[in-house]
Simulated scan of single mutants.
Amino acid sequence: MTPVIELQRVTRTYDSGPPALADVSLLVQPGESVAILGPSGSGKSTMLNLIAGLDRPDAGTVTVDGVRVDRLSEAGAALYRRKKIGMVFQFFNLLDDLTAIDNVVLPAQLAGMSRKEAINRGMELLSSLGVARHARAYPGRLSGGQRQRVAVSRALMNRPPLLLADEPTGALDTASGEEVAELLRQLNSAGQTVVVVTHDLSLARPCTNRTIELVDGRIAADVVRTHA
């Protein structure tokens, strides 16, 4: 089985400080649900940016779904993100002047899908995530939990092999955060590979079955759990 993520001896240093990541190797297999944990400055964001092709390592290799991400040009990296990765952010990153459905279908239209096909796919996603009735609403009229569900729909639009979630409950109240954690768990149960970057163990526990703890740019623990 080909790993979805393969980091081999990856190091990334900024300016003259200590490495943000130091000789890190990691495998994530298809269908896994992984939380990358650690305090501020531990290397979580650097790892996320390298996996997403937003940054390059100083040493080592980054491979995602068979693509050598560290070798991509800027244009190649943008195409890679469009095809291979769905990204969910703390503050949703929805476009305020587009309706929920138009936000969701945007990645598919950029990838060349017809608007009719994109709308059909987008409405299926919004329906499955429980927010289809808000399809024509603008983000400013939605709750935080609803906006995050729209953002997850957008992330899944192009059927990416990997869903990256960066502090996905950080801007939500407790109840909405629990709903999003349950949504991520359900997506993983349906076969979606999920990587959640967070400092919040209460998010990591219910929606992932593997936790990787980073400390000072190195993997300090890698624990696989089974849910009761």
Rank of each mutant, 00 (worst) to 15 (best):
V4Y: 03
I5Y: 06
E6C: 01
R9N: 13
T11K: 09
T11D: 08
Y14P: 04
G17N: 13
G17T: 13
G17E: 11
D23H: 03
Q29C: 00
P30V: 13
P30G: 09
V34Q: 08
A35M: 08
L37P: 07
S40C: 03
S40F: 08
G41H: 10
K44A: 04
I51V: 15
I51L: 13
A52K: 07
A52E: 04
P57G: 02
V62Y: 01
V62D: 01
V64P: 11
V64A: 10
D65T: 06
G66I: 04
G66A: 05
R68V: 11
L72E: 01
G76A: 04
A77H: 11
A77S: 15
A77D: 12
Y80A: 03
R81Q: 11
K83H: 14
K84W: 00
K84N: 11
G86T: 09
G86L: 10
M87F: 15
F89M: 06
F92L: 08
F92S: 01
N93A: 13
L94P: 02
L94G: 01
A100F: 05
A100P: 06
I101N: 01
V104Y: 05
V105H: 04
L106P: 00
P107Y: 09
A108N: 04
Q109N: 06
L110S: 05
A111V: 06
M113S: 12
R115G: 06
K116R: 14
K116T: 14
K116G: 10
E117V: 12
E117K: 14
A118H: 06
I119Y: 15
I119T: 14
G122M: 06
E124N: 12
E124M: 07
L126T: 07
L129R: 03
V131Y: 06
V131S: 02
A132N: 06
R133K: 12
R133P: 00
H134F: 08
A135Q: 11
P139M: 07
G140A: 01
R141S: 09
L142K: 04
S143L: 07
G144H: 08
G145K: 09
Q146H: 09
R147F: 03
R149F: 01
V150M: 02
V152Y: 02
S153I: 12
R154P: 05
A155G: 09
L156D: 05
M157T: 10
M157L: 14
N158G: 04
R159D: 15
P160R: 05
P161T: 07
P161D: 01
L162Y: 08
L162W: 12
L163R: 00
A165M: 02
A165P: 00
D166T: 10
D166G: 13
E167C: 08
L172D: 00
D173Q: 02
T174G: 07
E178H: 13
E178I: 06
A181K: 00
L183Y: 09
L187W: 04
S189E: 15
A190T: 12
Q192A: 04
Q192T: 12
S202C: 02
L203F: 01
A204M: 08
A204G: 02
R205I: 09
P206I: 13
N209P: 03
I212A: 01
I212F: 02
I212N: 03
E213D: 10
L214W: 10
V215R: 15
G217Y: 07
G217C: 09
A220Q: 12
A220M: 09
D222I: 07
D222E: 11
V224Q: 15
V224R: 15
V224L: 15
T226M: 11
H227V: 13
A228F: 11
